[in-house]
Design a binder for these strands. Structure first.
Length: 215
DNA sequence: GTCGCGATTTGCT
DNA sequence: GCAAATCGCGACA
């Protein structure tokens, strides 16, 4: 049975809030294995970071919707994937947030495997992309709200379907507040003061220990 | 056309 | 703890 996707409107809200509301939701990867059989892997999202348009660390900082480059994706429709390549060898997966025309994204930093029966490296934004075979060519601007796709984000069990109006205003958190911890973001040289990295408390799949957030 | 750097990971000291 | 690996993008000439 496939879980229902989160509606596109879920992502149209405030970026920092969406980063928190995504904790505990499911990332679903579907593909056909080398034997020709379809496989579905589900993962819980356990660590995210928020990037907003007025944030110097955001790729869209200082850009406008008219910008015609890679970061232009950040201004597009909420719920699209933004996959970028960095350090000459790594991909990172983001979800576009805010209304179309406004830039913002949530970086997916760590996943807890629910189905895989083999060891998986899903701690860290680059490792999870490698584990799920996510690259820029295949998944940049891929819609993450459509079910039965190679990659989409689904509601966790117990997270009820929401009206568009409720979502766009402020989608409810899935995890209780006391299960979410905020820390400084990792690996950035600007805007370090923002506590915009969010982790599930005591989850062993978090990319690095909470409280030692800075590099 | 050229140059510098990065939302990381890994391995070595 | 520190530096190498490695390359696309964007800034500048």
């Amino acid at each position: 049975m496939l879980a229902a996707p989160l509606p596109q409107a879920f992502y149209a809200a405030n970026t920092v809030h969406v980063a928190r509301a995504l904790l505990g939701q499911l990332l679903v990867r579907q593909w056909v294995n080398p034997d020709g059989a379809p496989e579905t892997w589900r993962y819980r999202i356990v660590e995210t970071e928020a990037y907003t348009q007025d944030d110097p660390a955001c790729h869209a900082y200082g850009k406008t919707p008219a910008f015609n480059g890679l970061a232009a994706t950040l201004f597009k429709a909420p719920g699209l994937a933004y996959v970028y390549f960095t350090y000459g060898m790594h991909y990172c997966l983001n979800v576009i947030t805010e209304a179309e025309g406004s830039a913002g994204a949530v970086l997916i930093r760590a996943l807890e495997p629910l189905d895989a029966t083999f060891p998986q490296q899903t701690q860290g934004p680059a490792r999870l992309c490698k584990a799920l075979a996510i690259d820029k060519q295949g998944f940049n601007e891929h819609p993450l709200w459509e079910p039965h796709r190679a990659l989409y984000i689904a509601q966790a069990p117990g997270y009820n379907p929401l009206s568009e109006a409720v979502c766009a205003a402020r989608p409810p958190l899935l995890l209780p507040e006391d299960q979410i911890v905020a820390t400084p973001r990792i690996g950035i040289s600007k805007a370090q003061e923002a506590l915009w990295r969010f982790c599930e408390v005591d989850n062993r799949w978090v990319s690095r220990p909470v409280g030692k957030g800075m590099r």
